[in-house]
Amino acid sequence: MIEISGLSKSFGAKQVLRGVDLVVPSGQSTVIIGGSGTGKSVLLKCILGLVQPDGGTIRLDGQDIRNGARDAFLARFGMLFQGAALFDSLPVWHNVAFRLLRGSLARPKAEARAIALDKLRRVGLDADVADLFPAELSGGMQKRVGLARAIAADPEIIFFDEPTTGLDPIMAGVINALIREIVSEMGATAITITHDMSSVRAIADRVAMIHAGKIRWEGPIADLDTTPDPYIQQFIHGRADGPIGTLR
């Protein structure tokens, strides 16, 4: 279980997070929605310690992550970055198998490659791409390689930052199903950021909406359509008029 309380972060004069409180239950899929630039990616990076929060606490299974537990946390963890963040000096399969080729999870090269090919297949990429370099792939393919890398070592906790952005509808469906499967069958804890309402419905057990630096609404997916919250209603129906300002 990940418990976030009072998390705040500013960049210069710009306050991005202003006291985020959120509980992410284990073995469930939590989806974070919200307009672009509202700090969704920053929130994930704070949890990972990639961005130093200005205030607030983050606990993993009751332990404060800052107190040395971070390495242990990262060892059980996988992340898909919004921009894929593939290592462009390494071929695709090396990227996917990065964790399996070095460090505590290291295993023989042939085995690591076999696992990498299997993960690539699960994200809809065949073996041809394994020996290409990331720069030779389209944006959507890079995203899927990033996803394969995130799940390569069968992590217990996975963060997906906009997994279906840039994918065609069919591939988006495949990826949604894969994320659902990882949570349901492998019992992983997932946090997914997305703008795509069909993804939300396919992936989420719980939904949290971030607005103006705070969690505006949070609840089970079943309540999403029935909640009277005007922010949620505006967001899920994509209306231009409502409490969320649209500067034009």
Binding site: A75, F81, G103
Partner: peptide, 13 residues
């Protein structure tokens, strides 16, 4: 800039 350094960290490197 392309978050590859962040990605290294998340891969325990």
């Amino acid at each position: 800039v392309t978050e590859q350094i962040d990605a290294l960290t998340t891969l325990s490197t």
